[in-house]
Structures are given as C-alpha cells and as structure tokens.
Design a protein around this nucleic acid. Structure first.
Lengths: 96, 96
DNA sequence: CTTATATTGGACAAAATTTGACAAGTCAAA
DNA sequence: TTTGACTTGTCAAATTTTGTCCAATATAAG
C-alpha cells in the first residue's frame, strides 16, 4: 500500500474533501491531489500533520512514507534486493 | 561496508592517488576525497566509472551505493526495519 | 627544519531538483 | 449548462546537491 492510496482511503472514509485537508496543510488542492496520487512526495512534516488530521497512527503513515522513499531509490535497480538485505543488516547492527 | 571505504581500499591496494582517479572522473580531489569519506554522495554514473577504473565488479559497487542511499532515507527512523520489510515485499511482488 | 606532495575542511557558486502556485482542464451530479 | 471536486501542465521560488577554490593539515623526503 502506497502512502497516497492510504491517505485517500482514510480521507474518503471520513467524508473529507481534498480542499479541507489541503487548507489545513497550507498547500493548494492540486498539490494535495498530487500527493494522494503519488505524483509528488509529501514532506515528513506533512505526513505527521495528515496523520493527525485523519486521526490515524502516525507510525503507520510514516512507515508507508519511508517505504515509498526506499522504493524510489532502489526501483529498477538489479541490486535492489541485495541492497535491502545489506541495509537491514546495518540497521540491526546499529545498536549492537 | 560503505561505498567510500571500499573505494579507498581498492584505490590504495592498487597504489593509485585520489588525484589520478578524480582526474578521470572530471572532478577535483577535494570532491573525490569527500566521496571516499562518505561526506558526499557519488552519482550513479560516477560509481560506474569508478568500478571501471578500479577494475572491480560494477554490481558490487552499485550495491554498496544503493545501500548507502537506502540507509540515508531510513536512518534514525523508528520504522526503519518495518519499511525495509515492506519494500522487500513490494520488490519481490513486482514481477508476479 | 624545510620542501614537496597528498589529503582534508570549509566557504561559496553553479546546477539540478523539489516544492508549490496558478490557470485551465475533465468529470459527475444536479 | 452550472457547480463543485478533482486533475493536469507549466512556471517560478525555494531548497538541495554538486562542484570549485583556497587554505589547512598531514605525511614523507631531503
């Protein structure tokens, strides 16, 4: 699940309009529309605000947001999986 | 292993100077020095060139390069591991 | 100690990318 | 056909990235 899709899902299930959320985010509707469709990336700060407005767990949206970014980096790269594995090891070893 | 460290390792084992490699890359030595120390990110194109100059497998360096970037995105995020797992699933499902 | 060469650090400029605004468009409902 | 919600495309402002330059530090040789 992509961040934008999740946002749209939540927004619609609560009967909210793009116009209303974008106002709270202080961006215009086209911009919000683009974020929802994944055409533009949301800023971390905006993700936090959106989670708040949609009354959803911040961590859920942040995870989707991070995942989108990770995919953006490795997409179309032959070494994608290998890089993910290495990154995972590094993260796990960070505290050790 | 970070890309920069690997580059330095290879370069020194072959008795090459930063000056020589940076010339081939058409950047100056400070820039190359920064790439080696991970202070600056190399461009994909530069990684390819470096692999060629150091006679090392392109894929090895690209994997390190990608990993660095993935880590850059998720570092210091609580959801780092979760995001990696999700990304992995997405990549694996891409072809299916 | 001096000199010469290699590498690093920091400030700044150029280039590239991202972010957002705006105008105009589509689509569906009334 | 008018209205409201959303989308598309283009442009400029803002931010980030990439690279250059100069100076500082380090290393090695004489």
């Amino acid at each position: 699940m992509k961040l934008g899709n999740r946002i749209k899902e939540l927004r619609e299930s609560q009967g909210l309009l793009q116009r209303q959320l974008s106002a709270q985010l202080e961006i215009d509707t086209p911009m919000f529309s683009k974020i929802e469709r994944g055409e533009r990336r949301a800023k971390r700060e905006q993700v936090l605000k959106i989670a708040e407005l949609l009354k959803v767990d911040t961590q859920e949206l942040l995870t989707l947001w991070l995942t989108d970014q990770v995919l953006e980096v490795i997409l179309n790269e032959k070494q994608a999986l290998q890089a993910l594995k290495m990154a995972e090891k590094d993260i796990k070893n960070k505290t050790k």
